[in-house]
Design a protein around this nucleic acid. Structure first.
Ligand SMILES: [Mn+2]
Ligand SMILES: [Mn+2]
Ligand SMILES: [Zn+2]
Ligand SMILES: [Zn+2]
Lengths: 146, 146
DNA sequence: CTCCAAAATAAGAATCATTCGCATTTGCAT
DNA sequence: ATGCAAATGCGAATGATTCTTATTTTGGAG
């Protein structure tokens, strides 16, 4: 499940060289399953004894976003960007405002809406971002707390 | 339509003093109708001969967001936050990726979805952000251009 | 109206995520 | 194996936002 060249073919489709940094970063994103910040990735790579510069993490992420292999998102409140693999099906996340946990939710409620926008406004939709805030099951009872 | 104390009552409901800066900023947001960055607000205030510091623009915006009078949002791609009045009905925006124009759209396609999230995941939704990207009517023909 | 304490502002420094510049190393086609 | 373009390391630079502190303004008490 974990090799140096696991993502060689994927990278090749983007005309990108297969480097240990790119493979390790992609593997880390895959193992996470949840979106991570550049710094979180940097730290997880360190734990795996992958020596890498934070600049390189950012550079690799930028490249992978350009190629469409990675999705970048940014919370309205948060200051750091989040990155996750895009090879999974399109989906969204629930953000618990108390414990900060992120819950992925399969599927998307916006397909009909995008068609409506095309019909009514002549707007050709190419993508969207949706983030939902609230209290997760464990935190809903503490809704009043600080 | 334009006075120094136009928003005195609104501000009072938030225990905020009615200052010329706050009134002018709120008036500018109201006149815009579209979300603006802190810097855009700063420049529009200058044009109105309102002498204000950029730090103050940020500080006022933070205060108004805390009180719920202003909505702050951040594009996944963009680096600057956008601010708009929240006293209007809940709505979303279309972002043209070519001409960068923003088109407000009344209404929200997510009410049913939020109920579904509550039922299926026990997640108590308190809010959401939705941004739709694509090509506006004028730009759709140039979809291939740089 | 005058005066005071609290709140708000100006100005610039500080912060922090992200990007850049350039020297060095690495991947990969030949 | 060789050479060159691509990738990386590392520190400096950038830019949006926040913070610090002195000064000014507001709203209310007297
Ligand atoms: Mn979606
Ligand atoms: Mn909405
Ligand atoms: Zn929670
Ligand atoms: Zn357009």
């Amino acid at each position: 499940m974990s090799g140096k060249d696991t993502y060689k073919d994927l990278l090749k489709t983007g005309n990108l060289k297969s480097t240990k940094h790119r493979n390790a970063l992609l593997e880390t994103l895959e193992q996470s399953g949840l979106p991570l910040t550049a710094e979180e990735l940097f730290l997880r790579l360190k734990e795996k004894n992958v020596s890498i510069s934070l600049s390189t993490v950012y550079r690799i992420l930028e490249t992978l976003v350009d190629k469409g292999f990675v999705i970048r998102s940014q919370l309205a409140t948060g200051n750091k960007a989040l990155y996750e693999l895009s090879h999974k099906d399109h989906h969204h996340h629930l953000h618990c405002v108390r414990c900060r946990q992120i819950f992925p939710v399969d599927g998307c409620p916006l397909e009909d809406y995008e068609q409506l926008l095309a019909d009514r406004f002549g707007f050709t939709v190419t993508g969207h971002n949706l983030e939902v805030f609230g209290y997760c099951e464990k935190c809903k009872d503490h809704k009043q707390d600080g």
